[in-house]
Design a protein around this nucleic acid. Structure first.
Lengths: 157, 157
DNA sequence: CTAAGTGCAAAAAGTTTGCATTCCG
DNA sequence: CGGAATGCAAACTTTTTGCACTTAG
């Protein structure tokens, strides 16, 4: 519980494998830029804006362009290794899909923008029931709680 | 339950009153454009993109500009009569805050984009508990279930 | 009157696309 | 080699801002 945990090396390797399989199947190509972008993405595991991710990528290869990061994340979303997120600021963020980690939702501090993950089985069950009731075939969901974290509450008072 | 219900006349009047009180308190001004934009917004009650709203506004006054609609909705958000929403397409939508209607969440059909509202008291309780556990002072939340609605399931098969 | 609000157009901000060049398979 | 991917810059889209003009209070 709490902040995102570090992923194990072999989990990361498995993610690269899944991606590689998809790339091969589709006749796409594995490039150094793609490997770099996806590796950093897999390791940080989400909630990064494109801007943040690009910055990290450029630490290791300054020639990589915006477009490549956008295109690579679109590829990850396409093969369902990543999901898009919008947390209210106009910025698109991606996060690792459930394949790589447990399903979770988000607690977001509206003051310091910190993002904390949580899981709650009981809520998941209730969700399924609601979808059923409306005849929906549920694919995914988004559950975000916005508030002020303990630290910021202290600062404000 | 189901699609958004029509709001009663007096509820709409109450919303205008709340807004007027805020405007007065802040030394702002009530203009015909603001009254028009907010009235249409209150009556439709949410899930409208700025573009949709502007179109409706221009049916009644074609001279109203984009900026006015943006600024008016920002004002509504500022006085907590409206909340911002992002449903995955890059478009900002606003919806009436809880003041005007019951709290509810959303079931969204990824195929036809239909948006259905639902309420679930049990989930609300669980949310509060999660926020408590993390020491968060909860302000609002977003809970969206994405899937395929019964009609689209039929079409697809 | 006078400061807030409007409409317009220009500017930002974020994302996508076209194209010549690079390079994987 | 041939086509996919890249990097760059230009194009797009959505939202914000600057400014002269209008108007509520």
């Amino acid at each position: 519980m709490g902040e995102a945990a570090q992923l194990k090396e072999d989990t990361i390797a498995a993610l690269h494998d899944t991606l590689q399989a998809y790339i091969t199947k589709k006749g796409f190509r594995s490039t150094s830029q793609r490997r770099l972008v996806t590796d950093i993405f897999f390791r940080t595991g989400g909630h990064m804006s494109i801007e943040d991710l690009l910055a990290k990528v450029r630490e290791q290869d300054p020639r990589v362009g915006y477009a490549t990061v956008y295109r690579t994340l679109r590829l990850l979303a396409e093969c369902e290794l990543a999901n898009v997120r919008h947390f209210g600021d106009g910025v698109t963020r991606y996060e690792l899909a459930d394949e790589g980690k447990h399903h979770h939702d988000h607690l977001i501090c509206t003051s310091c923008k910190r993002i904390i993950e949580f899981e709650d089985e009981a809520i998941e069950v209730l969700q399924d029931r609601i979808a059923d009731r409306h005849g929906f075939n549920l694919k995914s969901h988004k559950h975000e709680l916005y508030g002020v974290c303990p630290e910021c509450q202290q600062k404000q008072s």
